[in-house]
């Protein structure tokens, strides 16, 4: 825009300008109808003001043509609004396949982030400009909501689910990140900052953090520590199905139904294994609900995804080797900042 509108937040993502353009359209249409009605009311109120105490109005019977006009024209305009709004929403719900994935966990009252390459952050999120970023959002306790006004995006963090949102930052800088869903005492303190860096600076930032191993590495260690590997063997000889290459594939369930093995499916199969049984296997697996934290769950899923090879978003180079003996996953590790 040619001037800085003080009533519009910074436009720092690709969605920002399309949402704002739509917003200005909505404001214009609303202003038109508001002015139209207020003007008519004012003109009639003055023109037809009561002049004698005993005066009555002149009867005017309804007019079907008028009724149809002010039903159909607003309906048409409403449909334009519906389709325009829906088209932006569709774009927001379809992350591109080359998006860089970052896990987000909301917890009263902080935001925890973990990059696929292992770097952790609390209440601060570093991302490179120009790169689509997909946030995989979970919660450890109650419902929270990731809200970045400068990007015009928001998504609830629902306990027991992984939700996603994505954006492509278009401008370097520091932007507010809020919790938008009321979550108790310090809800308004559950704030963070999104730091958008030039790609080179972002790589330098990644390299500068203490190396704790990628999420997939941490997940692999967990996979062994929790003895997942005893049943889920690579060669399909175990009591559970092989998890190699399972991510993104179509899984046939007992009873013949099929399901795509995505993030939600993997999560459900860990915390509620009886929900969907793979064809040919017995329902033997115990639940891991409460045994793994939200972040450990994310690491396990990252490991399973990595085994499918070429997972999007893992392209950023891993920095260094895993520190020997580093705890597999816990909030006690030093963050990168």
């Amino acid at each position: 825009m040619w001037f800085k509108n003080p009533f519009v937040p910074e436009q720092a993502s690709e969605f920002a300008s399309s949402v704002d353009t739509f917003y200005f359209f909505m404001v214009s249409v609303s202003a038109f109808f508001a002015i139209l009605v207020v003007t008519l009311v004012a003109v009639f109120a003055i023109r037809y003001r009561r002049r004698h105490e005993h005066e009555a109005g002149t009867p005017v019977h309804g007019a079907l043509a008028l009724e149809l006009t002010w039903t159909l024209i607003p309906l048409g305009i409403a449909m334009v609004m519906f389709f325009w709004g829906a088209s932006i929403f569709f774009a927001m719900s379809k992350p591109p396949s080359n998006a860089m994935e970052i896990y987000v966990v909301g917890k009263r009252w902080m935001w925890k982030f973990q990059h696929m390459t292992g770097q952790r952050e609390i209440n601060e999120l570093h991302v490179p400009v120009g790169q689509p970023v997909k946030l995989l959002v979970g919660s450890e306790d109650v419902i929270h909501s990731v809200y970045i006004p400068a990007f015009r995006v928001k998504m609830d963090a629902v306990p027991g689910r992984t939700t996603t949102l994505w954006f492509t930052p278009t401008k370097t800088g520091r932007y507010h990140l809020f919790c938008a869903e009321y979550c108790g005492q310090k809800h308004s303190g559950m704030r963070g900052t999104v730091v958008v860096l030039e790609p080179a600076e972002f790589q330098a930032w990644l390299a500068g953090g203490p190396a704790t191993g990628s999420m997939a590495d941490a997940g692999q260690k967990l996979f062994n520590d929790l003895a997942c590997a005893t049943c889920h063997r690579d060669d399909a000889s175990g009591r559970g199905p092989s998890l190699k290459d399972v991510f993104g594939s179509t899984v046939t369930l007992a009873g013949g139904a099929t399901v795509t093995a995505d993030d939600a499916y993997l999560r459900e199969s860990i915390v509620n294994p009886q929900a969907k049984i793979v064809e040919g296997y017995a329902p033997l697996m115990p639940t891991f609900q409460g045994l793994v934290t939200e972040e450990q769950l994310n690491q396990l899923i990252a490991y399973i995804k990595a085994q499918a090879g070429g997972t999007p978003g893992t392209a950023a180079p891993a920095t260094g080797t895993p520190a020997p003996g580093a705890p597999a996953a816990s909030g006690t590790q030093p963050s990168t900042e």
Binding site: S18, V19, F22, S30, V37, V41, F89, M92
Partner: peptide, 28 residues
Amino acid sequence: FGFLGLFLVGGLTGLFLAALGLDVHVHD
């Protein structure tokens, strides 16, 4: 008269919230 003016603004801004792509930003 006051109702007409205020209800008009309230109703029209409801259209903003019904719009999917815009509600994402202004929700909550």
